[in-house]
Amino acid sequence: MGMSLIVKKVTQFVIGLIFLYGINIILFGHLGVGGGFAGGVILTCGFILIMLVFGREKAIQKMRTNVAHFLSCIGALAFLAIALLGYIDGTFFFNFIDHGKEFHLHSAGLIPFADIAISIIIVSAIFTIFVLLVFFGRFVGDAEEYENDEEYVGNIDRNL
């Protein structure tokens, strides 16, 4: 599965940079351009690149869909927890951590944590949907086999 050797080698070289760039954009979203959403989508694009170049098996080895499903729930809960943590010092969504020094990573209280939570949701959710779209319709012929299976997403892992 996958593309030619040259493409694979180049991707091996580039993929680390893409992930680093994504993580950079997530962590420094409150200082420069970027943020949780853009960084999360960049990370997802890295996964999609792996999927295109090395074949989908490899990408799914890196991140299984039920793990992704789990992670997206955890990310959403984490963001909600950040919102509720504001109650420690008064109201919903109150940014209660002290703000630190301007123009440093620790300068904006809860904002970097919120960025990380959002990026977790984005990466896992979009990865799930992408795998789902890629595999959709692949089991049309033997639908009867899955008569007792409820979760279609669950099937994908088992069938690789």
Partner: peptide, 24 residues
Amino acid sequence: QQLYPLFVAIPLGVAFLILLFPKS
């Protein structure tokens, strides 16, 4: 008065939480 945002937060939290449970 303090608990007013919970009208949104409780259903959201429950919706995120129950997806972690297995089918059984």
